[in-house]
Structure formats: structure tokens, C-alpha cells
Design a binder for these strands. Structure first.
Length: 425
RNA sequence: GUGGAUGUGGCCUAAUGGUUAGGGCACCUGACUGUGGUCCAGGCGGCUGUGGGUUCGAGUCCCAUCAUCCACCCCA
């Protein structure tokens, strides 16, 4: 091993796995565009305050997971730990409120969180993100859930489970939290230390504690879905109505509360099997207060993010068929200085004609052909002294055993073109 | 941040505390003249993660450190 290793929690995406990434990116792009989402690309870093305000001071992300630093101008900068805050910033900054509602945006790219890496968790990882801004109606929630659904369906996911809940809004959530903490204080002796602490710091979070001793308490806990205000109740019922109508399966999960401060009403996750302890491949929800909080006009919005590494892990676990990346069909072998000049000319002529081609750069004819074989090209073109004398090129169809033919040099491009066309038909 | 497991060439791996750390994959070269995949031959590539210690002698035992993996927390 060399002197340098990749920073903890980062990864090298080697050529061997690129076909998964290409396929995944193509799939999410196709689905997003089909839904009418427009792509938006944002800076990898933003000023730190955007995230501390947007995501929430008391969240794990802000408290311990941000990659923050000061730049040479003394500005406090953070590598983005999620997309939503940046999307909202761009929405406000670029005056996107004047666009016809809803504004539907998607992004793909790296995300940074300073955490201890483990299976399916990295410090630099990739997310697909989609947001619908400017619409309060549950159709917006439905839209992002359907997009998530269709992406996983297009990738032929098995063993999927959608988890759904509503966490209420500033109208009804405070009352629920009171009921919840009151209930928990009655059971203070039965719960774990962490949950006791959560009651003051982040009460909703007690609901997704995994401690065995807490499970009976959680099971008996009051459910927020049963204490929603009229508006939230109506919203949640309508959303579920659409999902029922479309026969999209979901599980009502009263324990699903999610980590970030900005969520209101709808929250959902998608869980998958086969990626270790990290079941969530996708998480999202509604954030009606965020845009105003970040200095924009009051604007309802809903969105979700999907972790691409986890999707790829599932694809590999399920052995999802993924097409090979295309390789150039032509490989040129040559012998001698004069032939190499002719070979180079042929190389550029082929490429100019739109035919993928590579040229041997070293070695005997034997090793050149061995390289041709391993590079997977369809045709090997040989130019040596004999071919030079006759103004010809020897053409080998690598899939056809040892047969080979001679083609006049000036006719080779057309010949290959015709052959490739016939193959593709 | 906490806990556990593991570190031998690019990858996989062998070596009762005892010679110059062995093999496989891959890679490169060759096999009468200019011809790929199989087979054959040869070759490149290691201060056994690093630093200490025990010992006549350490890949092997001990300590530390680093890295990776897995789990907790939480999330994608």
C-alpha cells in the first residue's frame, strides 16, 4: 500500500462499479424528467448558518455531523449535509416564487456528514433529492412519494416497505408533545437513560428508540396521528386516500418521527432489505415552515432524499441486471513505423465517422491482439508490412474464431460501419 | 463519541516461535517466420499496517498506535 489512503469514510468509485452508477443516474434522471421535475445544481458548500438555521441547532447533523471550516476570507463554510436547505436558499435567492406553482426541482450529488462509517454509511456519499415547492395540497406529498416509488420500481426493488406518519404542525404538535411527555413521566422507571434524556432535548425521538425495555412503553404511547388538528388530519386523510386509491402499499408507522427540525405533517421513509443495519434508503416529508424561516415568503413544500450508495448496495444484493458500459468496437494493431502512421490516420478516420476505436500503443503483434481480446472490441484491424505493400488492412472478427479478411485501406471505415450497422439491427 | 472484530504483494490466501515469507488470481513477456481466448514456461511485485517489547530467534507472543470492517447513537 502506498503512503496515502483515502480519508475515512470516503470511497473510490472504480471503473468496475461505474455501470451501476451510470444506470442509477440514468434511471433517476429519466423518472424525474418524466414527472416534470427540473434539475438544479447547487454549491457543494454553503455558509454554515444556512444549515444551523435550516436543519436545526438541536439536530444530530448540526451538533456533530457537519464538515465546517473557515475559508481564507474568514467566512464560515459547511459542506452540504443535505440538499433541502440549499434548494430553499436558491429558491429564495433566485426569486423562483414567481414561477408557476408548483416548482418541482431535483438534484443529484455528493453530501457530507462527519460520522463513523459502517455498512451503507459514508462521510461523503450521494443523494438524489426532489422537492415540490409552493403547494399545500396533499397532491404535492403524493407526487414526491410516487416519484420515490417509481424510481425503486424501475430498479426492480424487492422487499420494499413504505413507512408513513404525520408529525403534525405548530398548531397541534406542542399539545401532543405534552401528552407524550406526561405519559413518559408515568413510566420513567421503565425506560432507558437515553430516552429520559430525550424527553427534555427531543421528545419525539423517544418513539424510535430501539432499547428492548422501551418497546412496551412505546407500544402504549399516545399516537400523534390520533391527536392531529383538523387541518393536519384532513391533509393526512386525503394523502392516504390517494395512496389507497392507487393501491400503493404503505405502513402507518406511529414511531416514524425523523431527525430534522423542519418537518411538518407528512413524514415518510422507504426501507429495504440486505444492506445491514441501515434499512432506510429514502426519507422525506413536508416542511411548510422552512422557507419562511430562511427569509423567504411563507411557502409550503415537500420533498425527499434517497441515498445512492444504499440503492446500489441493494441492487448488488438483489443482483439487479445492469447493462455493461459500451466499449469501442474497433482495436487497431500495427507493426512498424510506417504502418503506425497509417494506423493513426485510420484511427482518427474511424472516430470521425462515429466509430469507437482504440490503438495498440506497445508490444508485439501477439500481445497487441491479446490486448484487443481483453479490451473486448468486436473487430481487430491489423496493419503490418504485408498490408502496407498491398494497401490493405487485415480485419479480424474477434468473435468469429480465426477467420479474417483483407479490405482495401480506403474502404475499411465504410466496411466496419456497414458491419456494425448490421450487428445492431 | 462508545463497543467488538480484523490487518501477509493490486485481490484472495499458506506458513507447530526456527533457513532467503509459499501459492492462486490478475498483470507483463515468451512458445521457429506477423495473429487473441485454453494449455505451457518465465517474469514483475512483500522492510508480513506502523512503532516498541519479550526471545538466541517474531508474520506467529505482549503493549501501543494507525487503518479497515461491523454494531450502537443517528441517519441516506
Amino acid at each position: 500500500m502506498g503512503k496515502y489512503t483515502r480519508p475515512k469514510g470516503t470511497q473510490d468509485l472504480l471503473p468496475a462499479t461505474q455501470r451501476y452508477w451510470e444506470y442509477l443516474r440514468a434511471t433517476v434522471r429519466r423518472e424525474a424528467l418524466q414527472y416534470g421535475f427540473e434539475r438544479i445544481d447547487l454549491p457543494l458548500f454553503e455558509e454554515t448558518a444556512l444549515f444551523t438555521r435550516g436543519v436545526g441547532e438541536a439536530t444530530d447533523i448540526v451538533e456533530k455531523e457537519m464538515y465546517s471550516f473557515e475559508d481564507k476570507g474568514g467566512r464560515k463554510i459547511t459542506l452540504r449535509p443535505e440538499f433541502t436547505a440549499g434548494v430553499v436558499r436558491a429558491y429564495i435567492e433566485n426569486g423562483m416564487r414567481v414561477q408557476p406553482k408548483p416548482v418541482k426541482l431535483y438534484s443529484v450529488g455528493p453530501i457530507f456528514r462527519y460520522e463513523r462509517p459502517q455498512a451503507g454509511r459514508y462521510r461523503q456519499f450521494h443523494q438524489f433529492n426532489a422537492e415540490v415547492l409552493g403547494v399545500q395540497e396533499p397532491l404535492a406529498d403524493l407526487e414526491v412519494m410516487l416519484l420515490a416509488w417509481d424510481i425503486y420500481a424501475a430498479l426492480d426493488f424487492q422487499g420494499l416497505a413504505f413507512q408513513l406518519n404525520s408529525t403534525g404542525c405548530p398548531q397541534c404538535r406542542p399539545a401532543y408533545i405534552q401528552t407524550l411527555t406526561a405519559y413518559y413521566h408515568q413510566h420513567a422507571a421503565e425506560i432507558c437513560d437515553t430516552c429520559r434524556r430525550r424527553l427534555t432535548t427531543n421528545p419525539l425521538r423517544v418513539l424510535d428508540c430501539k432499547e428492548t425495555r422501551c418497546q412496551p412503553v412505546i407500544a402504549g404511547a399516545p399516537k400523534i396521528a390520533e391527536q392531529l388538528c383538523t387541518e393536519c388530519e384532513t391533509h393526512f386523510t386525503a394523502l392516504r386516500g390517494y395512496l389507497d386509491e392507487l393501491e400503493k402499499p404503505y405502513t402507518l408507522n406511529h414511531r416514524l418521527v425523523r431527525g430534522l427540525d423542519y418537518y411538518t405533517k407528512t413524514v415518510f421513509e422507504v426501507w429495504a432489505e440486505g444492506i445491514g443495519a441501515q434499512a432506510a434508503v429514502c426519507g422525506g416529508g413536508r416542511y411548510d415552515g422552512l422557507i419562511e424561516l430562511l427569509g423567504g415568503p411563507p411557502t409550503p413544500a415537500v420533498g425527499f432524499a434517497a441515498g445512492l450508495e444504499r440503492i446500489i448496495m441493494v441492487m448488488q444484493h438483489q443482483e439487479t441486471p445492469v447493462p455493461e458500459l459500451p466499449t469501442p468496437p474497433v482495436f487497431i494493431a500495427h507493426l512498424g513505423a510506417a504502418a503506425s502512421r497509417v494506423a493513426v490516420q485510420l484511427l482518427v478516420d474511424l472516430r470521425a465517422a462515429g466509430i469507437g476505436a482504440q490503438i495498440a500503443m506497445s508490444g508485439s503483434l501477439r500481445s497487441q491482439l491479446r490486448t484487443a481480446d481483453r479490451k473486448g472490441g468486436r473487430f481487430a484491424l491489423i496493419i503490418g508490412e504485408r498490408e502496407m505493400e498491398h494497401g490493405e488492412v487485415t480485419v479480424k472478427d474477434m468473435a468469429q474464431g480465426w477467420s479474417q479478411t483483407s479490405i482495401p485501406l480506403e474502404a475499411v471505415v465504410a466496411w466496419v460501419q456497414a458491419r456494425l450497422k448490421r450487428v445492431s439491427e
